[in-house]
């Protein structure tokens, strides 16, 4: 699905990623953890194609294609999805209109027929149930005036609509109370299949009680310094990140 090799990236003069190597196979869930500033969100942004990040070395192949040669919209059309850490508010663009445009442009790209208003609405109603989001919210301007939890649920709603092959969730759990966290996790779990993969970027182990990862990676200073299974997350929770920093320093 996704193969990243020795990835280096910077924003402005700041070198942030210093050689990431990671492989994600179909059906797998990978959690990427690490202290603040370790480069987790940068990795997510680089994979989704945020333009202010510059890849300085390394490569990433996604479904056999060179990921960095694709525009952000083409990555999305090929099934990559980024759930934003801070979903953007766009006044004047309703979520419904936005999703209809997105779904139909993706369908066109794949050579499928575009959906008419009725079919689109019934698809939408079906997906709304997954994330328990109020439909009136979707008639409103995208994320404008939404609470933190509503914004994150809207991200998962969009993910459900677009049915990605590879979903990258960038700190989707941060700032969520336990109910919202459960709803979001539930949505992600229901969308899980043996064909699609998920990368969870998170600071806390809490999310992993609801979405059980196959692999856990710890990032520090722009590198993956430790990889393991879900037990690694528990160890991190118990010991904090400092023991890792010490370990890296010694090495």
């Amino acid at each position: 699905m996704l193969r990243i090799k020795n990835l280096h990236a910077k924003v402005g003069d700041n070198q942030i990623l210093n050689g990431i190597t990671l492989e994600v196979k179909p059906g797998e869930i990978h959690a990427i953890m690490g202290p603040n500033g370790s480069g987790k969100s940068t990795l997510a942004s680089v994979l989704a194609g945020r333009e202010e990040y510059e890849v300085t070395d390394g490569e990433a192949s996604y479904l056999g294609k060179n990921l960095f040669e694709l525009s952000p919209e083409d990555r999305a059309r090929e099934g990559l999805f980024l759930a934003f850490q801070y979903p953007v508010e766009i006044p004047g663009v309703s979520t419904i209109n936005f999703m209809k445009t997105a779904v139909n442009q993706i369908r066109k790209h794949r050579g499928q027929e575009t959906l008419d208003a009725v079919t689109f609405l019934s698809l939408m109603k079906e997906k709304i149930k997954l994330v328990e989001i109020d439909q009136t919210l979707l008639n409103r301007s995208l994320n404008e005036g939404f609470s933190g939890g509503e914004k994150k649920r809207n991200e998962i709603f969009q993910m459900a609509m677009l049915e990605p092959k590879l979903a990258i969730l960038d700190e989707t759990d941060s700032g969520l109370d336990i109910d919202a966290l459960r709803i979001v996790a539930n949505g992600v779990n229901k969308l899980r299949s043996k064909n699609n993969s998920t990368i969870l970027v998170t600071h806390y182990q809490r999310l992993l009680e609801y979405i059980v990862p196959d692999f856990v990676h710890v990032m520090y200073k722009g590198k993956i310094v430790k990889s393991g299974t879900k037990e690694l997350a528990l160890e991190l929770e118990a010991k904090g990140y400092d023991w890792l920093k010490d370990e890296v320093a010694v090495a």
Binding site: E73, L82, I90, G92, V93, F98, V103, I106
Partner: peptide
């Protein structure tokens, strides 16, 4: 730019995304 990227990251072509934002 951030909003433009948000729209594009959902599969919406750059020019359409621009027009959507300007229209809004």
């Amino acid at each position: 730019e951030e909003a433009l990227f948000y729209l594009r990251s959902r599969g919406i072509e750059k020019n359409t995304a621009r027009a959507m934002m300007l229209y809004a």
